[in-house]
Design a protein around this nucleic acid. Sequence first.
DNA 1: TGTACATCAGTGAACGCGCGTTCACTGATGTAC
DNA 2: TGTACATCAGTGAACGCGCGTTCACTGATGTAC
Lengths: 200, 200
Amino acid sequence: MTKTYHHGDLHSALIDSGLKLLKARGGPESGQGKGEDLGLREVARDVGVSATAIYRHFPDKSALMLALAYEGIERLGRAQRKATQDAGGGPAGFLASGMTYVRFATDNPALFRLIFSHVPATSLLDAELDEVGTAMKGLREDIAHLMPKHLSDLERKAAALHAWALVHGLAELILDGHVAKDWGMVEKVLSGMLAREPRQ
Amino acid sequence: MTKTYHHGDLHSALIDSGLKLLKARGGPESGQGKGEDLGLREVARDVGVSATAIYRHFPDKSALMLALAYEGIERLGRAQRKATQDAGGGPAGFLASGMTYVRFATDNPALFRLIFSHVPATSLLDAELDEVGTAMKGLREDIAHLMPKHLSDLERKAAALHAWALVHGLAELILDGHVAKDWGMVEKVLSGMLAREPRQ
DNA sequence: TGTACATCAGTGAACGCGCGTTCACTGATGTAC
DNA sequence: TGTACATCAGTGAACGCGCGTTCACTGATGTAC
């Protein structure tokens, strides 16, 4: 029995299923498929298609994973930009952006990890970046833009790294279950940094 | 051919080999066995013993991994305490402790990840913690002790979390290749936090 | 409108792989008498 | 000192598993004449 998808529908069905399965794959607390990789056969099974059908749409497994990572990073970026804007920019926007980062991670543990486990080769020239690398670069630039203007380049770079590392660390520690998912505390920590560092 | 190890020597040989293999497994930049789990058979092969011999010393694979994680966290804790002391305590000690955390991660990527991927169940009572959980708790307390005394409990808790998340985030981002291993920059970021937060 | 044909997205069987784990075993070591 | 025996840390063969990937295939769709 040959199932038929109209022009490229299976492609998006695979992405959708992948995202769904990654979402279901919760953090360590959910017993289900804790830290395991998403499988190619697993996605095919979920869509209801033979495993080999996937090869009509992606050259290999890693291409599928890359597409999922790309979709994930796009969503993260979108969510952060929206949060910044909704909060009206400035320090409040910066705080909202950080909270959104951590929230995204705890809402999508497996997707979050997939995004960051894709080796981006920091050292590549822009022209050599793949789509995930480019999206990651955009994310870094978004952070940089939130930094106060009066700082020197070096200071801004350090402040941006500080902010990124802080939210990333919080996300990872919560995902691994080493820190409680206490949003009041998370906000306190983030606004603590903010109150001192980026005075604008 | 039955190899013979005098009373419990194979036990430590397995741990040693595990640590060695984890060390060799480097970060994403080293092509070798990037993100893959350490295998039971792999350790046995390295020690030069049959895979089943391991079962004389550990009930199953995860017990071996737990023993490795425990050894890792002990080493990390020891390194941090030494660094703090060598720097003479105070803010300098705090900075040294943080630098050591990040350095440990980049020096031992696979071991570092193994430590944190072991679900500790934050919510457990102390009496229910396994040895890894207990060691992790010690690590948290070490950080807390470095916090300035004049702060309220809540403030100290937030400051400790800030510090931990910051070094952890730096470590993860560097391990994943998203941030360059630039020690000057890392020190700048850490001392930036320190100059503002824990005034003692 | 009907027929011939190319295209191409699916199919299921099969591949080799390495894994963790089980099983019945063997052979050295140490102790009791 | 010599012999019988229990202990126990090793052994290699075998298990079932799920994986990513290859292969030759089939059957529906759409176009050219």
